[in-house]
C-alpha cells in the first residue's frame, strides 16, 4: 500500500464499499454537471461573441426553465441525501455482540484496551470478519479516531464516551490518524490498525502479557473502592443492584426514565447525584477526579459484564470468562 502515488484508498471494511459506491456516483454526477456547464458556457461565449453589427437579444427569463432547474436538482439532491443517510445509519448502528475496545486518547497518543485485557498504544490488532465496537474518550482535548481504509471517523471528546464500529474485511496494516486538530504533535498522533486472520489474531491475543480481562480489573477496582458495600447483589444494598443494569431502562428519582448506556454509567460514577435512581438516597461519594479514565473504563466494563446469567443464580459477583470467542469470518 505504500506506493508513491495512490489515487484510491484501500478498501478494508464492510462499510468502505458502500461509501465508495456513493462517492463514485457523486464523482460521475459532478463530472457530468461540470462538463455540461463548461460546454454550455464555452458554446454560448463563442457562438455569441461580440461582433460588429450584431446586437444581443434581450430575454427576461423563463419560469418553466427556472422551475425545472430548481426542482430537478432538488430531486437529485434528495436521492443523494437518502443514499448518504442510509450509509450513515449503517455506520452509526453497531451490530449486537460486537467485540469491544476501549480507547482513551490523550495528547498525543492512542491508548487502546481489549476486553480481554491486552493494552496497546498507537496500534490496534483486530481479526478479519469480526464486528469491533470502540468506546472512546479523551483525557484532555478533542481528538478524532480516523481509519481511512475503513472509511470511519469519530471525534473523541473529553468527559463522555463516543462510539464507532467497523468490521475489517482484508488483512493488512492501515493508517490510524487523529483527524481533529489537537496541538503540537497532532500529525504525530498516528498509529496503525493491524488486521489479522482469526488464527493469527488468536495467537497474538494469547501471546501478549495481559493482566486479566478488563472486567476482572474492573471488579478488583470495584472491591478496592468499596463499591460493593452498597451495591450488593441482593435487594438489601443502600445502592441499586447493578446486575442486569446495562442496556436496560432506569427509573429516576425525578420521574424520568432513561436508558443505562456507557455514558450513564460513567456519569453515575463521577457525579452520582446527577441522575439518581428512584428510591435511593444521594449518599454515594463523588468520584470525579479520583479515578483515571483507564480505571473508569475498567469499571464500566465490569458493570456491563454483570448480566443475570453471568452473575449466576445466587447473585454472587463471580465472572465467567469475559473474552468472547472470536467469530468465524463470514464468507
Amino acid at each position: 500500500m505504500f506506493d508513491n502515488f495512490p489515487l484510491w484508498p484501500v478498501r478494508a471494511s464492510t462499510t468502505a464499499g458502500s461509501v465508495d459506491a456513493l462517492y463514485i456516483f457523486l464523482v460521475l454526477l459532478s463530472a457530468f454537471m461540470s462538463v455540461a456547464i463548461f460546454i454550455m458556457i464555452t458554446i454560448f461565449a463563442l457562438r455569441y461573441r461580440r461582433r460588429a453589427g450584431r446586437e444581443a437579444e434581450q430575454i427576461d427569463g423563463s419560469n418553466v426553465l427556472e422551475f425545472t432547474w430548481s426542482i430537478v436538482p432538488l430531486a437529485i439532491f434528495m436521492v443523494i441525501f437518502v443514499w448518504g443517510a442510509r450509509i450513515f445509519f449503517l455506520e452509526r448502528t453497531p451490530p449486537r455482540g460486537a467485540a469491544e475496545i476501549y480507547v482513551v486518547a490523550k495528547q498525543w497518543m492512542w491508548k487502546l484496551q481489549h476486553e480481554e485485557g491486552q493494552r496497546e498504544i498507537n496500534e490496534l490488532h483486530v481479526p478479519v470478519g469480526r464486528d469491533v465496537r470502540m468506546i472512546m474518550t479523551s483525557q484532555d482535548v478533542i481528538h478524532s479516531f480516523y481509519v481511512p481504509a475503513f472509511r470511519i471517523k469519530q471525534d473523541v471528546i473529553p468527559g463522555r464516551y463516543t462510539t464507532a464500529w467497523f468490521r475489517a474485511t482484508r488483512p493488512g496494516t492501515y493508517h490510524l490518524f487523529c483527524a481533529e486538530y489537537c496541538g503540537t504533535q497532532h500529525s504525530g498522533m498516528i498509529g496503525q490498525v493491524v488486521v489479522m486472520e482469526p488464527a493469527q489474531y488468536q495467537a497474538w491475543l494469547t501471546g501478549g502479557a495481559a493482566s486479566g480481562s478488563m472486567a476482572a480489573n474492573g471488579q478488583s477496582m470495584f472491591l478496592q473502592l468499596g463499591c460493593n458495600t452498597c451495591h450488593r447483589f441482593d435487594t438489601q444494598g443502600r445502592g441499586p443492584d447493578l446486575v442486569g443494569l446495562f442496556g436496560n431502562k432506569v427509573q429516576l428519582e425525578d420521574g424520568r426514565t432513561i436508558a443505562a448506556d456507557e455514558n450513564y454509567i460513567r456519569e453515575s460514577i463521577l457525579n452520582p447525584s446527577a441522575k439518581l435512581v428512584s428510591g435511593f438516597k444521594p449518599i454515594m461519594p463523588v468520584f470525579q477526579g479520583l479515578v483515571s479514565e483507564e480505571q473508569l473504563t475498567a469499571l464500566v466494563a465490569y458493570v456491563k459484564s454483570l448480566t443475570p446469567q453471568a452473575s449466576g443464580a445466587a447473585g454472587s459477583p463471580s465472572l465467567i470468562s469475559p473474552g468472547k470467542q472470536p467469530q468465524e469470518p463470514k464468507e
Binding site: S30, M33, I37, G84, K153
Partner: peptide
C-alpha cells in the same frame, strides 16, 4: 468564478452526504 464555484458547490454535495462526510470531513 462560475467554473470554480460550480466545482466547489458540487463537492459540497459530497460533504452533505452523511455517509461520505464521515470519511472526508477534517481531511
Amino acid at each position: 468564478f462560475i467554473g470554480l464555484f460550480t466545482m466547489g458547490g458540487l463537492t459540497g454535495l459530497f460533504l452533505a452526504a452523511l455517509g461520505i462526510d464521515v470519511h472526508v470531513t477534517d481531511t
